[in-house]
Amino acid sequence: MRGEQETSRNAAPCFIGQRDFPGTPQSAGAARKWVVDLLAGQASTEVMETLELLVSEVVTNAIVHSDSRKPGGLVTVCAGLVENMIHIEVIDDGSVISVPAMRQADDDSPGGRGLGWVDFLATAWGTHHDEEMGRVVWFQLAYEVPSL
């Protein structure tokens, strides 16, 4: 589990966008579309498809497992680039009873695989908590600029 041990980023990303989404289930799709539109043309189709999946998983986790799901709650998505990596941060309202952690999902369980996918597919990932911002789950995907 390389990701759970990673709690700091390598270098500061150059953020190119940030957007708040309501803490509702529909926001996962809206966040996914926003990130893909923002980063269109930055990476191969394969990397962009992986990016879509991981944004959806992390935003869904933020809504389901944090106080962002409460009325008026928000999830903030930040997208940036750093050292040939796409860098995504998902900031939620945190929770006193839940922290981001990979868990073993039952074969017949519909959930419990989100951070497993992040750990498997991302180049790096981690979490941290900031008293002012909230809880942050971030991940990075290596990319090469697609040839024309």
Rank of each mutant, 00 (worst) to 15 (best):
P146S: 11
S147R: 07
F15R: 06
L51F: 05
V35Y: 01
V82I: 14
S27R: 02
E49P: 00
A31P: 00
A122C: 11
T123K: 13
A62C: 08
G111W: 08
E49D: 14
P25Q: 09
R135D: 07
N61W: 04
S27L: 00
E52I: 03
T60V: 03
Q104P: 02
M133F: 10
L54E: 01
E52F: 02
V96I: 14
G72A: 02
V75N: 04
A12H: 11
A105T: 04
H65L: 11
E52S: 15
H128F: 15
G41H: 04
A79S: 12
F21I: 06
W138F: 15
V47L: 00
T76P: 00
D37S: 14
V118Y: 08
S66Y: 04
S66M: 08
H87A: 10
R135G: 10
M48E: 03
P71Y: 07
I86V: 15
L74I: 13
T7V: 13
P146T: 08
G41P: 02
H129W: 12
P100M: 10
V77T: 02
V59N: 05
S27Q: 02
Q140Y: 00
A142Q: 12
L54A: 02
T127H: 12
E83W: 04
A124C: 07
D67A: 11
D37G: 10
E132I: 14
P110Q: 12
A62N: 06
S44H: 09
A105M: 09
P13N: 08
P22H: 03
S147V: 09
L54G: 02
V99H: 06
A12D: 10
P22V: 04
N10V: 09
Y143D: 06
L38C: 12
P110W: 10
R2C: 02
G41I: 03
L121D: 06
D119C: 11
G116Q: 07
V77Y: 00
G126E: 01
P146F: 09
V96T: 14
S95K: 10
A30D: 10
E4I: 07
P71K: 12
S66T: 14
Q104G: 05
R2H: 13
R135F: 11
G72S: 01
M85R: 15
D37I: 11
V82Q: 14
E49A: 13
K33G: 07
I91F: 02
Q26P: 00
E4Y: 04
T50C: 12
G94L: 06
V118K: 06
T123H: 14
S68F: 03
Y143W: 07
D67C: 06
H128Q: 10
S66K: 03
S68M: 07
C14A: 13
G114W: 00
L141M: 09
C78H: 04
P146A: 11
V137R: 01
T60H: 10
Q26V: 02
L115P: 00
G23T: 02
L54Y: 01
E6A: 14
E131G: 02
G111I: 08
G29T: 04
Q5V: 04
M85T: 08
S147H: 05
G94A: 09
L39N: 01
I88D: 00
T123Q: 11
R113W: 09
D92F: 05
N61T: 14
Y143I: 07
G3H: 03
A31F: 03
M1F: 14
S68L: 05
Q104W: 12
T76S: 11
H129E: 15
V75E: 01
V90M: 08
R9V: 15
Q140L: 09
M133V: 11
I97E: 13
T45S: 15
